[in-house]
Design a protein around this nucleic acid. Structure first.
Length: 466
RNA sequence: UCCCGGAUAGCUCAGUCGGUAGAGCAAGUGACUGUUAAUCACUGGGUCGCAGGUUCGAGUCCUGCUCCGGGAGCCA
């Protein structure tokens, strides 16, 4: 008998009256003393369950079927038939049900047929994909990742797998996790008493990457259009709904491009991938919207149809100053925008994503290109309602003298960046790129309030249990 | 890291003035029914986060710690 997915069984891919096998996990069981049981079966292929109808004439009915509880793994053979009941168009009239994996203590099985808090589900991260919500989130996340690859591929971008382990120690994005095979109890020391990393695995200090940007720039200056899509790591003690110690980032890099082209790509990419997911995950998104924010889908549709507002940092400061709002942090030219400022701009002033460009050079990273005014750099942030900064990017400093000047200004030793400086010595061109936080994007699209709930196993300070 | 809030049954929570533990859901059993997170009845289920302290007596008051959440900072 042919094994088919629940999705294929329910959506007509498998013709009615076919004899098939379904495999999955029990959600609920309802018994009828008319001599049959109804079993809701889910296999992750879609949000919906398929209803199995099990007659008490089945040989293992009394022993096994009548005791099936949430979470039991089963296989069911039978004929797909039009349903006699309401609530589903087809169901499986089971000719055999095999118990593959029982639940040994139904009372303590954590996933019950009821609403659970997200906090509780994080404590059972290995079982939460068995809930409707996390099934839907998992499918949306997957389609979104596919959509990102597909969009960039369609625009002629090459996916570069940049390294996870890096020796660059100051990519300008915060604290790093050390990677070492040294004996932590008996660390080898130099004559001066310092830890001797010559004896470490790579013969030098190494860390987990905080960004693939510097590496991908090198490929950009050969392949023209490239991107990274992989995990990144920040050892910051950040405890918010928007931060993870391990998260995934998409970083396109465009050669022969300036900040405006960068912003255009960011806008086109967001609209494209959101449009794709709206189309491909309609059911899952509708379910998630029902649970989080009923206006979600309309807002996403509106976003794909509208122009993102572009605004200079100076203009943003002016808007904030004239807003009449009382902010906790003062609004002055030269200070970085605080969360409250970003929220006002994107949620109240514009009501859609907004691109803020050309920030003061003092508050931005060394590799960002100095503008002609010599007091701003060609940096941009894309701010989205509810989630804040979803993209950060810039045109890169392609002029060697300016880059060296900026490195000295930020107390960065050019000796550590010889290979990065080479890119400015050998055929340098204007280029630009950005980083899109994948979990923030998934959270924004699904209406989830916490990035810990859109990644399978969230890593946060003091928390990596699975 | 800072500010605020919280931790009581498998889950979500209530617990009055300090007087010895409650509900709903879940689970088990039964009744009923082509049922729809069914319905009804009964039953079992507790180291009240941990450690101290005050008190005749602490889930309740005090101190410390741990963990969780919300907000802030840092950022994607």
């Amino acid at each position: 008998m042919q094994w088919v997915t629940v999705n294929d069984a329910l959506t007509g891919v498998v013709p009615v009256n076919s004899e098939v096998t379904l495999k999955g996990w029990v959600r609920t069981r309802r018994d009828s003393k008319a001599g049959l049981s109804f079993i809701q079966l889910n296999d992750g292929s879609c949000l919906a369950n398929v209803q199995l109808v099990a007659q008490n004439s089945l040989p293992n009915y009394e022993d096994q079927i009548a005791h099936l509880s949430a979470g039991c793994a089963i296989e069911a053979d039978g004929v797909l038939t039009p349903s006699q009941g309401r609530g589903q168009s087809v169901e499986l009239q089971a000719s055999a049900i095999r118990l593959i994996g029982a639940v040994d203590d139904p009372e303590t099985y954590p996933i019950q047929p009821k609403a659970h808090s997200y906090e509780f589900l994080r404590e059972v991260a290995h079982l939460r994909p068995r809930t409707n919500t996390f099934g839907a989130l998992t499918r949306v996340r997957h389609e979104l990742a596919q959509a990102v690859h597909s969009f960039l591929h369609g625009q002629g971008y090459y996916w570069i797998s940049t390294p996870i382990i890096t020796a660059s120690d100051a990519e300008g994005a915060g604290q790093m996790f050390r990677v070492s095979t040294l004996d932590q109890v008996n660390l080898p020391r130099t004559d001066k008493g310092e830890i001797n990393y010559d004896e470490d695995f790579f013969g030098t200090e190494t860390f987990l990457t905080v960004s693939g940007q510097l590496n991908v720039e090198a490929y950009c200056l050969a392949m023209s259009r490239v991107y990274t899509f992989g995990p990144t790591f920040r050892a910051e003690n950040s405890n918010t709904a928007r931060h993870l110690a391990e998260f995934w980032m998409i970083e396109p890099e465009i050669a022969f491009a300036d900040l405006a082209a960068n912003a255009d790509l960011a806008e086109a990419m967001l609209k494209s991938v959101i449009g794709t997911v709206l189309e491909r995950c309609e059911t899952d998104l509708a379910f998630l919207a029902e649970r989080s924010d009923k206006g979600l889908i309309d807002r996403l549709r509106a976003l794909t149809d509208s122009e993102f507002v572009r605004m200079d940092y100076a203009e943003a400061i002016e808007v904030l100053a004239k807003s009449g709002k009382r902010f906790e942090f003062p609004v002055t030219w030269g200070a970085d925008l605080q969360t409250e400022h970003e929220r006002y701009l994107t949620e109240e002033h514009v009501g859609r994503p907004v691109v803020v460009m050309n920030y003061p050079e003092k508050i931005k990273a060394f590799y960002m290109r100095l503008n002609d005014d010599e007091r701003t750099v060609a940096a941009m942030d894309v701010l989205a309602p509810g989630i804040g900064e979803i993209i950060g990017g810039s045109q890169r400093e392609e002029r060697l003298e300016q880059l060296d000047r900026r490195m000295r200004q930020f107390n960065i030793d050019p000796a550590h960046y010889q290979w990065y400086r080479d890119l400015r010595r050998y055929g340098t061109v204007p280029h630009a790129g950005f980083g899109l936080g994948f979990e923030r994007l998934v959270a924004y699209i699904t209406g989830m309030g916490n990035v810990r709930d859109v990644i399978a196993y969230p890593r946060t300070p003091g928390n990596a249990p699975f």
